[in-house]
Amino acid sequence: MLELHGIRKTFNAGTVNEVRALQGIDLSIEKGSFVVVLGTNGSGKSTLLNAVAGSFFVDEGTISLSGQNITNWKEHQRAKLIGRVFQSPFSGTAPHMSIAENFALAARRGKHRGLSWALSPKLMHGLRDRVATLRMGLENRLDNAMGSLSGGQRQALTLLMATWLEPQLLLLDEHTAALDPKSADQVIRLTEEVVSRDQLTTLMVTHSMQQAVNLGDRLIMMHRGQILHDLRGADKARLRVEDLLSRFEEIRRREQLDESAALMLSERYV
């Protein structure tokens, strides 16, 4: 379904700000699987999702999705196959346009946009019912500007928009990180609902170990631009928060060991 081979990405190469954000990622995701991505800050989780979505071209490696080599596709071309929800509620919607108009945009994701009426009766008809399923009362506010809604409402709508036309791949990048706990719960429940209903192939980054344990059928742990652990099947199902904590602790200890070794070496030789 999604195949990544030898993906490398370095930002600001050759400068003092050089960051090797992805250092050789190989990943193969089957159709219909729900993969949770966990990792320390700056480990390259967002960069991985951005590489798949085409926010930039990778330095090395190939990306293929649904049997097509999309390595050289531009971002808007890949959007034909990919639905996305960003970390910031501001990123996924047009704030000065109405809820209905935002959905009109999503209803033609990756399709030709011509001179037919954006808010067609057909769209408006289905929209009301779908938005009503959020149980946020937004179905009566379809004319309101997106910018007038709360972050939780916007993320819920963005998720609905991203899946309005069933995507081959759904990318969720810490899409609840900016929300208060109650809204975050709501959006997570909606995520589970949508993903399982449409059997969507999903790649979800999260900072929450609880989410990582509860959701998905596969878990990837990233560190320093590489995939450190890859758990699936029974291993993933058996996973508890404590196991994750101890794995992070292990990373931390190894890091410290590296640092003290470096310190020792530099004390001795420099």
Binding site: K74, H76, F86, L105, A106, R109
Partner: peptide, 13 residues
């Protein structure tokens, strides 16, 4: 209004 969103919706900014 939001060019990032437009790209994510598959339109060429």
């Amino acid at each position: 209004d939001n060019d990032q969103m437009v790209k994510a919706q598959g339109s060429d900014v």
